[in-house]
Amino acid sequence: MNSKEQVKIIKERSGTDASKCMKCGKCSGRCPAYNEMDIKPHQFVSMIEKGEIEKLLNCKAIYNCLSCFACVERCPRNVAPAAIIEAVRQEVIRMQGGNYINSEEIPQIVDEQIPQQLLVSMYRKFNK
């Protein structure tokens, strides 16, 4: 698959129209994980629109995005940066060897108190 097709698929998967962005930066102004995002939410929108996905596919931000939807809630133009981040994350974890955590690692990160909800959501977010 060439990267043009890949961009198209990611855009469709996100269900959001990045061309509506007016580059105000409110998403990044609101992001609670901003300092942990090596690619910032507004950059996801701009880079997907320009078709520059190489950096997106290799970034750490897709694992640090909390999916808290604050950026989506606040966007004045109905763009959903979190949905683009999710679409990129899916692109990565669906690739062979793309899983972010291995099941062998689980026992080390689990403690007595961890709710089932956390395990399942973590697994769904990071693995395929």
């Binding site: 105000c24 930066g25 409110k26 998403c27 990044s28 102004g29 609101r30 992001c31 604050a70 606040r74």
Partner: peptide, 8 residues
């Protein structure tokens, strides 16, 4: 002047 928007 700061180019950007306030989130909170």
């Amino acid at each position: 002047y700061i180019k950007g928007m306030v989130g909170k």
